[in-house]
Structures are given as C-alpha cells and as structure tokens.
Design a protein around this nucleic acid. Structure first.
Length: 259
DNA sequence: ATGGTAGCCTTGCTA
C-alpha cells in the first residue's frame, strides 16, 4: 500500500446509520475513518460489526449526544480521549491517536447556536482550546490530520446563501476569526488547497429539500500539518452516501497521503 | 406566516 486514505464523516448516530456506514467502508475502503456524532456510549458502539470489516476501533462515546471515534485498518496507538484544556468539559467531542506514524484527530466542534446563549460562548472557548492544542501538536513536526465536523463555514463561498446565514454561529466573524487563527498556525485545508472555492458542500439539512436543491454548507474539514500537506495526493467529498435511504445529513470527505 | 426532518428515549433537546 503506497497511499494512506483518511476519511471523516459525521454519521448522526452510528447505530441508526450502521448499514450505511458498513456499505461505505466496503466501497470506499478508507484506511482511517474519523467519525463524529456517534450518539452513544462507548460500550454501545457496534464495534464487532466494524471489526469484522478489518478495522480497529477507538471510541469516546456519550449518551444521546456527541461522541467521536477512530476506525483504522492499522493499529491505533496512543489514543487520547477528550480535548485538553478544560477537565470540567463533559462533552465527548475529541479523540486523537497515532496510526502508522500519522497523528489523527476526530473533531466534533460545538455548533454554537443560538449565538446569544452560553452555547456560543462554549463554542468559542472550545475553539480557543483547539487552537492551543493544535499549536502544541504542531511543535512535534510530524504528519498530522485534524479532521471532523468543525461547524465552521470558512468563507461565504462555502454556503449556498451567505446572506441568510451571516448571523449563524457557523458563519459569525468571531467563529471565522478563531478558525483562521488555527489555520494560520500552519495547517492546510486539504479540500481548499486542491480545489479552491468551488461551492462544494459536506452538509445538507434534512429539511426543505436542501439536498435535492444542493443547498449545503462546507463544514467538515481535513486540516493537515506541513508534513502531511507535503504528502497530499487527493482530497474529495464523497457525496454518494448523502443521497441514499436513511442518510446522515453530512457526507464523507477524504484525503489520501503518499506513504 | 415561521414551517419543514431526524435521532435520542424526552414528549423536549439538539442539530
């Protein structure tokens, strides 16, 4: 194997989505899959079915909400459950590990709506912690892919109707400023680096026929350290899974790195 | 005018 394929997908409940996820693993064959919103406790994660597909599993679950996981065909080493920086944070939104020498993280960044509540405050504080942790990780000068549902629309080109969304927590200037600050540490948005601003989306709301109208948002991102970006071969949004019965409202995004 | 969908295990919350 001369390439490493790393995918990220907010599945919106791993148990409700299991047939779709297994079908996607069989067809896309990612070496690493970063999952978000598994919406179950770690002991309820359907590990056996996924291990049957040849994957190792690391899970950081939570009852009903949030929850993240890493699937990998190669051994998973040095797993860290939870984003450092606030021991009082009880939400399962971050898991990190090393796979064949590449550090990977599965990130489910807080949504932050409504913006006039503590939810937005929590989002911004969480982004500060992510910034600080990414800064620490970058000092290792190793290949690293920080992937997940960032709940950030980086620019107006990444949403079907920027005017309608300008006051949303996913688009607010405070949100974008913190996201940019993290990028400016030296991370590369893999999709944007290879495709530019093309109006390609990773999320389409279940309501109002958003998928059928292709009215979506690009909020799922793969951010690469310089050592990973140097190895970047491809990055694509796999829109197929969004169009199937019992779809998640997100679709997978993947990149491949030279070995 | 303020809906509409989906998943959780509540009959509301989160997205």
């Amino acid at each position: 194997m001369s390439e490493l394929k790393i995918a990220s997908w907010n599945v919106n409940s791993i148990r409700a989505r299991l047939p779709n996820v297994l079908a996607w693993l069989d067809e896309a064959e990612p070496d690493v899959a970063l999952l978000q919103e598994i919406k179950c406790q770690s002991e309820s994660f359907p590990a056996l079915e996924i291990e049957d597909r040849g994957y190792n599993v690391a899970v950081f679950g939570q009852k009903s909400y949030n929850g993240v996981a890493i699937l990998s065909k190669n051994p998973i080493e040095d797993a860290i459950l939870g984003l450092p920086g606030d021991p009082s944070d009880e939400q399962a939104r971050y898991i990190e590990a090393v796979v064949v020498g590449v550090r990977v993280a599965s990130i489910y960044l807080p949504n932050g709506n409504p913006v006039d509540t503590e939810k937005f405050t929590y989002k911004l504080a969480w982004m500060e912690r992510l910034h600080d942790h990414a800064q620490a990780l970058l000092r290792h000068e190793e290949a690293m892919v920080l992937g997940g549902d960032y709940n950030v629309v980086p620019s107006d080109d990444d949403v079907y109707d920027a005017a309608a969304w300008k006051d949303d927590a996913l688009c607010r200037p405070e949100t974008r400023a913190r996201y940019r600050a993290t990028l400016y540490l030296g991370l590369t948005d893999a999709f944007r680096a290879l495709h530019g601003e093309v109006g390609a989306y990773t999320f389409w709301d279940y309501q109002k026929g958003r998928w059928q109208r292709d009215e979506g948002l690009r909020i799922d991102h793969l951010l690469l350290s310089p050592q990973a970006a140097d190895r970047l071969l491809a990055c694509e949004i796999a829109s197929g899974p969004r169009g199937r019965p019992k779809a998640s409202d997100h679709t997978p995004i993947w990149c491949s790195l030279s070995a």
